Simulated assay, not measured.
Amino acid sequence: MNLQEDELLHLVQRWRNVNINIKNFWYNVGNAALETVSKQKPMRVGKITFEYYDNYLFIKLPSGRKLSYFNPMLKRNIYGKESLTYEGIATNKKWQRIETYGPKLVENIVQGISRDILAHAMMNLKRRNFKIVMHVHDEVVLEVKKNQVTVEEICEIITIPPPYAEDLCLKAEAYKCDFYKKE
């Protein structure tokens, strides 16, 4: 975007001020993870539960599925603040200690919940005998006979919320074609 480094900080601050609930959620998640590891007692942020046992930090999603972080430890980061680290495969493809923080944990949580919602949609389709050819990130590709079903009917099926999120308002878009393509 051809922005200078000093321009970015102002934009980031403005975005955070406008999206205060997101910012607060980042901090609440980060603090819950730190406290769970330090006190080894469960914590809760909304519908997300943090647990520590058997040398793992577990983040329990609303579906009941858990994200796991092996051998979590608290360390001082480069800014002198307490930080959460865990062991895993880093970007260099080697096993090492990785530092994380609230916004990154929220990203993991959002991706996990998104996966769970997609899996629920796929199960709904499978129960109705649709042939799922593949799924890509947030898409499901079906093979159906011509004029067997409308895209509106497909959207209706895949936007049925899971039981653990009955109030979740889901929306889907679909298209039909003779071969797979990115819309």
Score class of each variant (00 low, 15 high):
H10N: 11
Q13P: 01
R14M: 00
R16H: 02
V18D: 14
I20G: 02
V29G: 07
G30D: 10
A32K: 14
V37L: 04
G46T: 02
G46H: 08
T49D: 14
Y53R: 14
Y53P: 00
N55W: 06
F58D: 06
I59A: 13
L61G: 00
K66S: 06
N71I: 04
I78D: 03
Y79D: 07
G80T: 11
K81N: 13
S83M: 04
T85C: 14
Y86W: 11
E87Y: 09
G88W: 08
I89F: 09
I89L: 12
N92W: 09
K94N: 14
W95S: 12
W95Y: 15
Q96G: 13
Y101T: 06
P103F: 03
P103M: 00
N108P: 01
N108T: 01
N108S: 03
I109F: 12
M122I: 13
L125I: 12
F130W: 10
F130S: 08
V133E: 05
H137L: 00
K146S: 08
Q148W: 12
Q148E: 15
V149G: 05
E153I: 05
E153W: 04
E156W: 08
I157V: 14
I158H: 05
I160H: 11
A165P: 09
L168A: 03
C169W: 06
A172H: 12
E173S: 11
A174S: 00
F179I: 01
Y180P: 11
K181F: 01
